[in-house]
Write a protein that binds this DNA or RNA. Structure first.
Lengths: 118, 118
DNA sequence: TGGTATAGTTACCTTTTTGATACTAAGGAG
DNA sequence: CTCCTTAGTATCAAAAAGGTAACTATACCA
């Protein structure tokens, strides 16, 4: 089933709009290579299944590499493809806007950015 | 219910990730002011209800203005807020990436960008 | 008197997305 | 033996998102 996009921004949004996809990409961008379990730790609240699914979709869309080491227990490493890195500038802009938006809506708003624990 | 974001990019994605929100923002960016019906023409396939909902959410998030003229039949104009325009550069980057992505995946892919009819 | 126009709202359904939970493979540690 | 490890799958349930169709208000036109 061939998807029909009416506007180029839909292509990008399609690829980035999963509940965890943006954050996954940001972490891979910051840290380079991450194993499945490491990624999971950085996304408090994802279920196993959902994380797997989001990663598979990112892989299908050509944004992340999946490197499987043939060993038990399994070891799988994820990283951005060269192609995924072309999205970095965009992701950074989105982060900046997010920070400003949060500042702007201020303490009375109904949204809140959580600080990372050390 | 206060939303808890773990990462600033979630703030932005939250605001932009509706099925039609990105395209709506792009059209408002290109054309300035659009009435409900004009917007609807530019989004082949949206339902009345969904378009209304997407616009309401964009309004709540402070990205678009809604100007109601007290007349019958009703006339309502939508435009970007100053705040929404701060997202323009980001939206443009997303469009560019979308175009390149589409080019890259090429004619064998299962996605397709439709040309606007005149 | 009846039809047209615009920007909705409402009730009801279907599809899509996400979550919770339990299960698996195969080697090493105790 | 038995348990622990990791990166999954499978199954079932719940929630979120979106779609369809019908209805509204009020002025104007024929």
């Amino acid at each position: 089933m061939r998807k029909q996009y009416m506007h180029p921004i839909e292509v990008t949004l399609d690829v980035v709009c999963g509940k965890w996809k943006g954050v996954i990409l940001c972490h891979l961008q910051e840290e380079g290579i991450l194993r499945f379990g490491e990624l999971k730790k950085r996304l408090p609240g994802v279920s196993q299944k959902t994380l797997t699914l989001q990663l598979r979709e990112l892989e299908e869309d050509g944004l992340v590499n999946r490197k499987v080491y043939p060993q038990v227990p399994p070891k799988v490493e994820y990283s951005l493809t060269e192609y995924g890195t072309e999205l970095e500038a965009t992701l950074e802009m989105m982060c900046e806007w997010g920070i400003n938006h949060h500042d702007k809506v201020g303490p009375n708003s109904d949204s809140q950015l959580i600080e990372k624990p050390n």
